[in-house]
C-alpha cells in the first residue's frame, strides 16, 4: 500500500525528501501490454453505438466477468457533451470565485466557472478574480502579506497582483498526483514541491483522509501547509484503506 492512514494525514507532516526522481515509470510496468495493444484498435472499431450512453451499455456483455483478454471489442468512447459542473481542488469555485459577491452575479459566475471546460483558458479567465478573494482571506490571521506566494508590492505596482502567483496556480484547478510517490500524505504536495515551498516526494493528490480544509486555511492565511485547523480533523466514520476507499453509507 502506498498510502497511509487518515491519521497520518491529520498530522500533516510533510516528508522532507528528495525532489521528484526521474525513474518514475518503474512502478507499474505490468499493465502496459494489455492497454496499449487495445488502444489502437478499440478507438476505431465501433464508432456507431457510442453516441448514446444508455445504448452502449447493452452491447458488450463480456467485460464484467473479467474473463477474456481481448479488449478490442469495446465501443468507442462517447463524445463528451456540454459541461455542467467541474471540480479540481476542493472549495476553489466556492471560495475564490465571487466569494464576496452576494448578488446574482455570483451565481452566474459560478455557473460559468463550472461550465468552462477549456483548461488552457482558465488562467486568463479567473486569475484576477482569484487574486481579489485571496487578498481578503490572507487577513484571517491578522497579517496581510504572509500568504503562500505573496509578492510584496505586487508586480503591477501594488494591486491584487501581489497574489498573482497563487491565484494563477489555483486557476489551474486540478489535483496533481506524483504517481512515482511511494506515500500519499499531503494535499498540495506536488505543487509545494514544484514551487519549492516544501521539497518532497509525496504522491500529493487528494486522499479521502486528507484534512484539506486545514491545508487550505493554512496556505491562504499563513502561507504554510499546516498551522490553521478547522476543528474537524477526520471523517465521521473511518475510511477503508482498500478499495473502494470510502465508508459504507449511513
Amino acid at each position: 500500500m502506498k498510502h497511509t492512514s487518515i491519521f497520518v494525514a491529520v498530522s500533516v507532516a510533510l516528508c522532507a525528501a528528495a525532489a521528484l526522481g526521474t525513474g518514475c515509470s518503474s512502478t507499474s510496468s505490468t499493465a502496459g501490454t494489455g492497454g496499449t495493444t487495445a488502444s489502437s484498435s478499440s478507438g476505431s472499431t465501433s464508432s456507431t453505438g457510442s453516441s448514446s450512453s444508455s445504448t452502449s451499455t447493452s452491447t458488450s456483455s463480456s467485460s464484467s466477468s473479467g474473463s477474456g483478454t481481448g479488449g478490442s471489442a469495446f465501443p468507442a468512447p462517447p463524445t463528451i457533451g456540454t459541461q455542467i459542473d467541474r471540480i479540481g481542488r476542493p472549495a476553489v469555485n466556492t471560495a475564490l470565485n465571487h466569494g464576496f459577491d452576494s448578488t446574482t452575479a455570483a451565481g452566474t459566475a459560478k455557473d460559468a466557472y463550472n461550465a468552462d471546460g477549456t483548461p488552457t483558458g482558465w488562467k486568463a479567465a479567473y486569475t484576477a478574480q482569484f487574486e481579489a478573494n485571496l487578498a481578503i482571506i490572507d487577513a484571517l490571521d491578522g497579517v496581510c502579506g504572509n500568504q503562500l506566494g505573496y509578492a510584496s508590492g505586487g508586480v503591477d505596482g501594488g494591486t491584487g497582483a501581489s497574489y498573482g502567483l497563487l491565484a494563477g496556480a489555483l486557476t489551474d484547478d486540478e489535483l496533481y498526483v506524483n504517481t512515482a510517490g511511494t506515500t500519499c500524505t499531503q494535499y498540495l504536495a506536488v505543487e509545494a514541491n514544484a514551487l519549492a515551498v516544501a521539497v518532497n516526494s509525496d504522491c500529493g493528490g487528494r486522499m479521502p483522509g486528507y484534512v484539506v480544509m486545514d491545508t487550505t486555511y493554512s496556505v491562504l492565511a499563513i502561507g504554510a501547509l499546516t498551522g490553521v485547523k478547522n476543528g474537524v480533523e477526520a471523517n465521521n466514520v473511518a475510511f477503508p484503506a482498500t478499495f473502494p476507499y470510502e465508508a459504507a453509507p449511513n
Partner: peptide, 18 residues
Amino acid sequence: LTSGGPILGVWGSTNTGS
C-alpha cells in the same frame, strides 16, 4: 495514465450525454 510522464493532473466534470 502516465504516457506523458509521472505527474498526473486530474479534474472531474459532469456533462450532458451526447
